[in-house]
Design a protein around this nucleic acid. Structure first.
Lengths: 118, 118
DNA sequence: CTGTATCCGCACCGATACTG
DNA sequence: CAGTATCGGTGCGGATACAG
């Protein structure tokens, strides 16, 4: 069954479109996992994020966080103490996005085994 | 505001998990666009897909379609005529997935400009 | 029209070492 | 604890040519 409306005119997804860039950021290798991890608790520290997005390297976590932060999806709060303490959390906009990512991830978790079995 | 349940135990997304593979397939550079394009019409031909996922190369379209087909998300029907005529469409499972992708893409289209402005 | 085959650059990414 | 800096390999992905 087909849905009613089209997302884009003529059903064409333009190449030189801002949405492409954002889509790439969000669906980057670690973007989804970081956003979802943050959607499960109020705040998360760097080391906790590393634990939860299992397999992510320091470099890629830093890069992913920088992109998501510059996109206004994640906010970074550094507490000036020793040892350093930095909290990451979702912005309002990030929460909105994560709310859409959750059903997707949930479906994937439910169907992954079946899918790879075939 | 935080959601009620956790997607995964302890909030940890395991590295060696089938969902990782499926997530990578779906969020691959062209996976989302192909699935969404197919979600807008009953069937699409190869050349139409190339048009709609603007910027995709033949190689990447072929690769993307093969992966999505082997995952049981897309079905390929070749009509034995000359010139060749091949129809791609979403499977039942693919429709389910695309239904979750649509709100996501819709949100991205709505917010992309704002996001990149900041 | 619907692909496959091949080459190859470059950006992504992991590993390692280092710093405030 | 929370990163940055740098190096180097690899595989993604674009371009091109070719085929059924």
């Amino acid at each position: 069954m087909k849905v009613s409306g089209s997302l884009v005119p003529d059903g064409v997804f333009p190449a030189n479109c801002p949405s492409r860039t954002v889509l790439d950021h969000v669906t980057s290798k670690w973007g989804v996992l970081v956003l979802l991890a943050l959607s499960e608790t109020e705040t998360l520290r760097w080391s906790e994020l590393r634990r939860r997005a299992e397999g992510v390297s320091e470099k890629m976590l830093a890069q992913t966080l920088r992109v998501l932060e510059s996109d206004g999806l994640v906010s970074r709060v550094a507490h000036p103490v020793v040892p350093p303490h930095v909290d990451y959390s979702l912005t309002k906009r990030g929460e909105e996005l994560a709310a859409l990512l959750r059903p997707l991830m949930s479906w994937i978790l439910d169907n992954a085994e079946d899918i790879l079995a075939s």
